[in-house]
Design a protein around this nucleic acid. Structure first.
Lengths: 72, 72
DNA sequence: CTGTGACTTTTAGTCCGTG
DNA sequence: ACACGGACTAAAAGTCACA
């Protein structure tokens, strides 16, 4: 199960891009700040409804959150 | 919350494309057949780990399951 | 082969803190 | 501002009998 890690990394990336704190993002999507942190670390098995909420708050498409940047 | 509907439709589509029954797909991804059915109908708020399992069983990328075909 | 309602178990998700 | 923990509540996971 490693897609939750990809998701966490991407949430972190887009959150930083918007200059938001975990607290602010949590506020925008109606979730708890400790939960956002855990998701970014890949510790939680997040559900699709919440993935959608976070994507909306970050103003990105859901598919963008699943994009796996491997590589360099 | 409507991404779970998109997901359900796509799971159904790719399952049909492979000529699988809900039972067979359930067997391949280690889930229960009634659960697969409920997900296809958009009744369950499925988590990322299970989305990944289903994508693997269908041999498609996770992002494909989120692709929204609109259009007539 | 699939839909549905009911059900129990597990975990998501919250809220209180700490360093 | 973030990581992490414990305790708690809401909801998802997972199963079943029957239509």
């Amino acid at each position: 199960m490693r897609y939750r890690m990809v998701l966490g990394k991407n949430i972190h990336k887009y959150r930083m891009k918007k200059g938001l704190s975990q607290e602010k993002l949590a506020e925008y999507c109606g979730l708890h700040r400790t939960y956002i942190g855990a998701v970014e670390r890949g510790e939680r098995n997040i559900s699709i409804d919440n993935i959608e909420k976070i994507a909306n708050a970050l103003e990105v498409d859901v598919t963008q959150l699943f994009h796996n940047e491997r590589g360099h």
